[in-house]
């Protein structure tokens, strides 16, 4: 038993991924076949596949996916651009931390889904209201990671730079950025998957005409459960690609970590 596990461990990632995905499909199909579920309750992989081909052919999947992606990426970027300077301020200034962090922490007790309707009242543009929901979701984990990353820079490194009379800007560029980068990228990875959820929450609150969330709700009202599955799998694929992209970035930027 263990020997066959070791055999699997030696295979490349894509092969094991393919294997586990195939296994998942098989189990799914078996559940559907033996459980004799109605197609509207639980469609099988083949039903979903047929539906997938249909929405790809008529272009609907691509249109709605692109629309949702166009909300996810600005959401992640804007969240990152706001969280970074704020995180730097919080890590550097005990006063700022005292004044701001209680609100930040309290704000995390309120689920985004509860705030989102407010945003749609305040913001006229459907698109920007959805982007803002994504921003709100990714903002906090990225912020927390930036603060943790900066706090983890050893005091002795600062002493080294001070003893060499480095300027604030040099300390930022040559010490704080590279030292905080690993934790920052870890935060960005979490943020990347969360941004997909954020955009979707935004679309649920504002289910107007466009986006995968809209497609999902429409499919549900029409009892097209197989289409619901297509949308879910597409969302998962988008989240996985975003994660993979940042993991790739991480591998390039943190090459020094692999040298052991």
């Amino acid at each position: 038993m263990f020997r066959s596990f070791r055999f699997l461990q030696q295979q490349p990632l894509w092969l094991t991924s393919l294997f586990s995905f195939g296994f998942l499909l098989l189990v799914w199909q078996m559940v559907v076949t033996w459980g004799k579920y109605d197609r509207f309750i639980l469609p099988g992989p083949l039903d979903v596949w047929r539906q997938f081909q249909l929405v790809v052919a008529d272009g609907r999947l691509l249109t709605h996916s692109l629309y949702t992606i166009s909300e996810i990426i600005p959401g992640l970027l804007i969240g990152f651009l706001i969280a970074t300077p704020l995180g730097y301020l919080l890590a550097k200034s005990p006063l700022a931390e005292r004044f701001i962090s209680p609100y930040l922490i309290a704000s995390q007790a309120i689920p985004v889904i509860a705030v989102a309707p407010l945003l749609t009242i305040w913001i006229r543009s459907t698109y920007w209201a959805r982007v803002l929901v994504a921003v709100l979701v990714v903002f906090f984990p990225i912020l927390v990671n930036i603060v943790a990353g900066l706090r983890s820079v050893p005091q002795e490194y600062y002493e080294l730079f001070h003893s060499l009379r480095a300027s604030q800007w040099q300390i930022f560029r040559k010490l704080e950025v590279p030292a905080a980068l690993p934790v920052l990228l870890a935060g960005l990875k979490v943020g990347a998957t969360l941004s997909v959820i954020g955009a979707l929450v935004g679309e649920f609150v504002q289910p107007k005409s466009q986006g995968l969330g809209f497609l999902l709700i429409t499919a549900r009202y029409q009892f097209k459960t197989d289409l619901v599955f297509v949308v879910l799998l597409t969302l998962a694929a988008i989240a996985l690609s975003m994660y993979g992209f940042i993991a790739l970035l991480e591998k390039r930027l943190l090459r020094w970590r692999d040298q052991r």
Partner: peptide, 13 residues
Amino acid sequence: LVFQHDNLLPWRT
């Protein structure tokens, strides 16, 4: 300045 622990920056060669 040299400290007890080498204090080298791990991201630099």
